[in-house]
Design a binder for these strands. Structure first.
Lengths: 118, 118
DNA sequence: CAGCATCCCGGCAGATACTG
DNA sequence: CAGTATCTGCCGGGATGCTG
């Protein structure tokens, strides 16, 4: 098992905290096909406010997962791109997504069962 | 790509929400080696309060990931065990942990770099 | 266009004390 | 032993409005 010293190890927490935010994984995933600008990202994602998108990008940048390129001038042009490190995180994200597609209905069924019998 | 319709799909969110809680994944992981009782789990995990452990177990049970067996009598004996569904979720959890072990130091280095230059 | 400044709210999680 | 009952603080995230 690769992660046997899991419980006490803070390093594992690191990855979970990265994926624990509502939007981190979504933005990372949306960026997988190349640089996008702020507005493009908002469109592609849908349902995220401008403020929250900026916060998320700042967080990802802080953790070395996203690279921010500001081309100066007016109007402002800012592009965001995955770093190589950020790109490696797409693997776990995809694994989670795959699990959801395989077992999502089982979870929902369990939820309804549990709700039903109070 | 298995999860191309990721952004709009609520099913993917399901899995992320499951792993977004601070303790869900930890408790799931702690349960991977068979049934444990409330007190045993607390010991094995460390740093979790009784109340929060109960809440977490209730949540996991609600989602069909954990099975709760109460053997009546005094003193009370309650054991928790992974369901087959819960066991499948160990795979993504392990993937995340493996990523953390492989790239955790890169993230920490990036954080220090970002903190350093203000 | 990109993004800060505010205000606000709900829910996770910790600490503490109590019960069958 | 395995919980429940409170009280509390914190932070993510939404809404709105303003700026260079």
């Amino acid at each position: 098992m690769t992660t046997d010293a899991f419980l006490a190890d803070c390093r594992a927490r690191l990855a979970f905290d990265l994926l624990s935010n509502t939007w981190n994984a979504v933005v990372l995933w949306a960026l997988r096909e190349g640089p996008y600008r702020h507005g493009e990202l908002r469109e592609r994602i849908g349902g995220i406010s401008s403020k929250v998108l900026t916060e998320t990008l700042r967080r990802l940048e802080f953790n070395g997962l996203v690279d921010r390129q500001a081309h100066p001038g007016a109007p402002p042009r800012v592009a965001y791109e995955l770093t190589p490190l950020g790109r490696t995180l797409l693997v776990p994200i995809d694994t989670i997504g795959a699990w959801a597609f395989a077992h999502g209905d089982e979870v929902m069924a369990a939820q309804e069962r549990a709700s039903g019998l109070q």
